[in-house]
Every structure is written in C-alpha cells, then in structure tokens.
C-alpha cells in the first residue's frame, strides 16, 4: 500500500504538472482547474516522450500551475530564516530544477487510468479539491487531494496529497534531514541539489 501510495503520489504530482495550464479556467473555478489538469495530463502522458521532453514540459507546468516559490519556502521550513538572500535565490531555482527532474522521471508508468474530480471546498487561503484516480479490476480508487492558494482570483497549487501522503511534507522532511546531516547548514542542501540537478548526480 505504501509503495502504491508512493507511486500514485508521484502520479498525482505529475498529472497536475504535465497538463497544459488554462489560466482563465483556473481563475474562475479551482475544481475545473484541477479537472482540466488531470484530464489533459492523461492525454499528454505518453510513453513516447523522452526524458528530456518530460522534464521540460513538466517544468513549464510547474511554473504555470504551482506556487513554486511558496512550496520551496514551505519545504525549507525554519531554515529559510537562516539562509542568506543569495542562498534563498539559488535554492528556489534549484528546487524547481529538482522537482522537475525528480517527478518527471516517474511519468511513464501512469497511462490508461481515469481521473475525476470528486469535490471542492473553500479553504482559508483558497480551496481544497478532491479527486480520484480510478483503477481497473475493482481496486480501491486512489485519492488525490489538492491544496490551492488563491490570490487575486488566481489559484496556484501549493500541495498535492495522494492517499494522504503530501508532496510538500515529504520534501520538507527530506530536506530537513539533509540539512541536519550537514551541520544545520543550508549550503549543504544547496550543494546536494546542485549535484542532483546537474545531470551527473541524477545518473
């Protein structure tokens, strides 16, 4: 189950990110925004795309539909406060590279499943949209929940949770561990992110 969740967590994020964004729809209705994202993603998700294409497509969609700077900052947690301006700037850039690299590689497995939005409700900062990935063979559907932050009528995704596993929380926990194993220095994380995203580290 956990492994399934890991898999589907990756999927949810990928689904969201892959689909071409429709800012007009997004502004009006968070549920419609996620619905469009999911459905378009299933069309776009093909085994045909190369790794590089996926990463690039993914990055564009991250920028369009996700609050990348906000997520990056949340993920860094309290260490944001100890980072210098230069470190923050480099970290946010590397974070985007890293997410694009890490999650784009998990794309190819998720074709041929059905995505549907099951609910939406307003939340303090925006909205929470619930959705499902319906799987064949009578297996329980995978629950995918999206946290959207609204600002001036425009919604951006700030977290995705698949079967209760949050991408932002997972990333935050991992990064905190990395920093603490580097003597509490954000620079240690930045160095590792550089290596991972430079190509040789990602192997």
């Amino acid at each position: 189950m956990l492994r399934r969740s890991v898999l589907t967590a990756a999927f949810a994020i990928l689904v969201g990110v892959l689909a071409p964004a429709l800012p007009a729809a997004a502004a009006a209705d968070p549920a419609a925004m996620i619905s469009t994202l999911g459905s378009r993603a299933l069309e776009v998700l093909g085994k045909g795309a190369t790794q590089a294409q996926r990463t690039e497509r993914f990055r564009e969609l991250l920028r369009e539909d996700f609050d990348v700077p906000g997520i990056a900052r949340f993920v860094l947690g309290r260490y944001w406060n100890t980072a210098t301006e230069e470190q923050r700037a480099e970290y946010v850039k590397l974070f985007e590279d890293y997410i694009a690299m890490a999650y784009a590689t998990r794309l190819a497995e998720y074709t041929g499943e059905t995505f549907k939005v099951t609910g939406s409700r307003p939340d303090a900062d925006g909205a929470i949209v619930s959705s499902q990935i319906v799987r064949p063979g009578g297996a329980a559907p995978v629950k995918v929940d999206w946290r959207l932050t609204g600002r001036n009528g425009v919604y951006k995704i700030s977290d995705v949770a698949v079967d209760g596993i949050s991408m932002a929380v997972t990333q935050r926990s991992e990064f905190a561990s990395v920093i603490q194993h580097n003597g509490g220095q954000v620079q240690g994380l930045i160095t590792m992110l550089r290596q991972k995203t430079s190509g040789n580290g990602a192997r």
């Binding site: 079967d163 926990s173 561990s177």
Partner: peptide, 14 residues
C-alpha cells in the same frame, strides 16, 4: 537526496 529520510516520511504519513 536522502532516501532513508524520504522513506521515513512516506511511511509515517501513510
């Protein structure tokens, strides 16, 4: 970046 920490977080959250 830290597979151990990632798995730890995934397990707990799940």
């Amino acid at each position: 970046l830290d597979y151990y920490a990632t798995i730890r977080s995934l397990y707990r959250q799940r």
